[in-house]
Amino acid sequence: MSSSPSLELSGINKIYKMGQIDLQVLFDVNLHIYPGDFVSIIGPSGSGKTTLLNILACLDRPTSGVYNFFGEDVSSKTNDQMSEIRNLRIGFIFQSFNLIPRHTALENVIMPLHYSDRHKNSNFKKMGLEALDLVGLSDRIGHYPNELSGGQQQRVAIARALVTNPEIILADEPTGNLDSKTSDDIMSLLKNLNSDGKTVITITHDNEIASQAAEIIKIKDGRVL
């Protein structure tokens, strides 16, 4: 590809200090993800894929190595600047949906907007409705998470991920809690988003899910294979 990478990991190591013992979970990881990519990171549990996702998501910092996020070195960012990146440029989708139970679907969707200075004067409701429309849940805006099926909850989560119109969608086992029919729906939704220009990164241990991505990155024992 001709364009420069959106996300670029070079020589990333991650070491957790567990008392006296240093536990290294990532070894010299190099990774380039370009705009519009659909990447699956696959590996067994304990392979370090969650740690890699946390670093990609600007939730965690590497012990050594350089992570360039759209050309900017993330290691120099403060926690609040990292929060801003996550807020505006990354949409999160989780295995367990992670909606806030006492808020309606619409309220959950617009939550990231409250934390954004850029959207201070935006019409939250309108943006939220548009995002819910994209995932086909316009008729469920007033429902609470416990009134929605798993697939519907995941759609709300996807709408929340989309509401600030980020370039990157990070999905951590997005279909792990769903039956196969619903899984297919969610995966095709992600594919649609990708074809609309979003960079989608999923993490999974399921080969079948991974195979739906354009590119598969295998990780084992903290090393990218």
Binding site: D80, E84, N87, L88, N98, I100, H114, Y115
Partner: peptide, 14 residues
């Protein structure tokens, strides 16, 4: 809930 809020972009002051 706090973890979710921070992940989707809440700053410490929020």
């Amino acid at each position: 809930e706090i973890g979710i809020r921070i992940t989707i972009g809440a700053k410490s002051r929020d």
